[in-house]
Nucleic acid binder design. Structure first.
Lengths: 341, 341
DNA sequence: CTGAAAGCGCTTACAG
DNA sequence: CTGAAAGCGCTTACAG
């Protein structure tokens, strides 16, 4: 058992006193700086061990300026889409000697701001943000003060900043063109709420692909709203019912796709489905689910690497990096249009 | 644009000078302490706004002792099993006004230690750890110095500490008893490497259930090793081949189950499967996958709540909290034994 | 090779 | 109601 009282820890001063040396000498030993005789060093080390000393990095940070920590603001720590992204950011932070603060905005703009500013108050060196808000002017003073910031998955709002994202419109175009190539003309889009950037971009890609093929889009084929199972189920019932049901669905994200798979499994008539975002086991379902896969690990890695380049002093204009989506055909997107009932 | 030079930020001293007040008065306003006339407060606030001041929490922390941050050491940030767990820990931290540092050990004991000690050097108030190591004596000085520590999913090694985990042996017993009840006698267990605590416990449950039913366990029915797809495939080929193949598989975790599902889908003869750990879409596969579900969110919440109780000064003896697993029958576990080839 | 002094940006304890 | 001084535990810049 160490001799320290519960809740109080030995400091460099204590080590110096016990070793009979100056404070700076202890600092030199702890930080592996040169210029200490082996004999002195040994005395210091044994004092460190006897006292159970460990350097207080908070104090060090205060003095040095850089905190060797970065912040990650996600939409939801528990969303599997962000798991590889988080992990990639962590790996890059680790490689750069930084620790990672992580938190979720729960898709609430105020919470994103609260969390980002709390991280700034801790003086993280930089921030990787999956935006929930569409106005990031609140970050301007922080960025001007030197906190590097990179947005990922969605662009920043009302400020000019680095962003790394998937080519959402392009991926959506490819998805819809794929359905058209398989004979569909009546194709619905079910996406997230319209104020979400990715949802808007995917809708744009859908419309462009339809226009490119000279196909009309009936207003009620587009459904933008919450991605809760209940809402998606209701929308699917509407789209697949009536006298002129759609023959194919383009689902705008992961959550929607999973619900669509459940509903279509119970549906009498086969309906084609292409989803945005890949997910585990998509290949094991019957039929396998055709998707536009993003690469969340690469998104995270690219964003974090850009962040650390900024921290190293690279100060070119803000960049926008777009990564391509990849169509993976597995069966559900290759179902031909079935005759109307 | 704020007037601050890039990389340097205004301090309370700057605010005090500009507002023509003392340092302590600024501190009072920033922290919402009483005893400032509205007029003085207004002067201070306008100086804060003009300068773009934000309190440096690192300095505050150094002075106050508590850092209002906790650390989370996971096995892998990208493992979907830990996503709800992380999120629950984050929620509890947030509710207690703390920020969360998160990192992965990648199942490497040295990396767990490196990460945990780095967090201690930052003087986190507490630590939630999913252990990769089986010797945590390195944490004793830290815990004695007041860093609260709760282990989750697996117990600490060689020290007495709080732990929150699933009743692994009990869940495994239930899984195997379920297969036995459906007529199986030749049941294999494929688990993680034997030094991993959960793997050992699940093996114990398997053996107990077999013994309870008076069934022998052939040595080659037990396979403990890496959960990589290649290894699991090879083991399954062995278990399902030969002259006396097993008729049912109890898979010891998530990763193994997913590979088993893939292999069994291609297998000629139907083989029963029960997996430890639930996973998304398990119900949508054909057949649905019968599992022993853990509740990772509850594991995380319970661990974090225990941690904050400790931080509030509750100092009873270390506790061991076991949460039950839940059998969810979906089809794969109810397949009857098929005749040997 | 070694160390005393000043300071990082706050809060605490105290005095007016 | 307000503020000057001391100090949290380190590092920096400088002197011996």
């Amino acid at each position: 058992m160490p001799s320290a009282r519960y809740g109080s820890r030995p400091t460099m001063k204590d080590v110096a006193a016990r070793a009979g040396v100056g404070l700076k000498t202890v600092s030199r030993v702890v930080n592996g700086e040169p210029g200490v005789t082996p004999e002195t060093e040994a005395r210091v080390r044994s004092a460190i061990d006897a006292l159970g000393f460990r350097r207080n990095d908070s104090a060090r940070i205060l003095r040095k300026g850089r905190t060797a920590s970065i912040g990650l603001v996600l939409e939801d720590l528990a969303d599997p889409f962000y798991s590889p992204l988080s992990r990639a950011v962590e790996e890059v932070a680790r490689a750069n000697g930084s620790l990672l603060f992580a938190g979720s905005s729960a898709e609430v703009p105020e919470r994103e701001q609260e969390l980002a500013l709390a991280l700034c108050a801790r003086r993280v060196d930089g921030l990787v943000i999956v935006p929930a808000s569409d106005d990031h002017r609140y970050l301007e003073p922080e960025m001007a003060a030197g906190i590097a910031t990179v947005f990922v998955d969605r662009p920043a709002g009302k400020i000019d900043a680095d962003v790394v994202l998937t080519d959402n419109a392009g991926g959506a175009r490819e998805a819809v063109a794929h359905l058209i190539a398989h004979g569909h003309r009546r194709i619905a889009f079910i996406g997230d709420r319209p104020h979400i950037h990715t949802a808007g971009e995917r809708l744009r890609g859908y419309r462009e692909a339809m226009a490119d093929a000279g196909l009309p889009v009936a207003p009620d084929w587009v459904s933008m709203g919450p991605t809760t199972p209940d809402h998606v189920r209701a929308e699917l019932a509407r789209l697949l019912g009536g006298t002129e049901p759609v023959t194919a669905i383009f689902s705008g994200n992961n959550r929607v796709t999973v619900t669509a798979v459940r509903v279509l499994a119970e549906h009498v008539r086969p309906v084609a489905l292409v989803g945005f975002d890949d997910f585990e086991l998509a290949d094991l379902l019957r039929p396998g689910v055709t998707v536009i896969a993003q690469d969340p690990a690469r998104l995270g890695r690219t964003a974090a690497e850009l962040l650390f380049r900024r921290l190293d002093g690279v100060s070119e204009a803000p960049r926008r990096v777009e990564l391509p989506g990849t169509l993976i055909a597995r069966g559900s997107g290759e179902i031909p249009p079935s005759l109307a009932p």
